[in-house]
Amino acid sequence: MSAVQVDTMSVHQPQAVYKTSIGKKIIMAITGITFVGFITGHMLGNLQIFLGQDRLNAYAEALQGLGALLWFIRAFLLAFIALHIIFAIILYFENRSSRPIRNVRVHNIESSLASRTKIFSGLLIFFFVTYHLLHFTLIVTNPEYAALKDSLGRHDVYSMMILGFQNYIISGVYILAILSLSFHLSHSVFSLFQTLGLNNAAWVPRLRMISNIFAVLIFIGYVSIPVGILFNLAKLPEGGLL
């Protein structure tokens, strides 16, 4: 073998990862996978509303009991939301400018309306999350929720959710938001696996199917809460509010 390896590929200073097109995708995928985890956990946690007031309020108190860890998780999620949005906007404008003049005829085959409109479904999700936090977490829009306590003196998250979703407008907005979330997710799960390189020819169709199934499950899971409340499957505690 030759003793000296002369390098003909230009000496190359690697670009900062977040500046390259693949790096930006990876940031979208890693932040995205965190949201997939959060969305799943948040749904499973709140579905406990159908197990009764005690169960849900105990769960809520346990979460609050995490103390500093809870704030760490919240800060982490907010930072990831910011990153996901910033890079989505950068990618959106870069991708728009990469074809200044469009063809008269465009025939899409594999892409879906969901995959092509993620920036818009994402924006809707962002507006909803902002409202959702003001509504249930920070209790700004409906300050009367703050006084709700159950018989054990815990913050009565159960009654708060029921009061919230008994309002048709709030439930309607919530269902539309979950619809755009599911729309977004129908392409997201496949996309993040592909971006992280966890894919091969056999898994392309499987992951696309999994992505769609996941989106449907998330839709059913979340929408069952306002629908269940509106159909009285979960009702205010007997004997009224304390």
């Binding site: 590929m9 190359h12 690697p14 870069e94 990469s98 085959i109 092509r116 996309s191 592909q194």
Partner: peptide
């Protein structure tokens, strides 16, 4: 690294996994 950096320099867009490329 070299090839991705050149690709970005040329002004191509970023892949968002639409899969239109494979179909075409």
């Amino acid at each position: 690294q070299a090839i991705v950096s050149q690709m970005d320099k040329e002004g191509f867009g970023n892949c968002t996994n639409h899969l239109e490329c494979e179909a075409a």
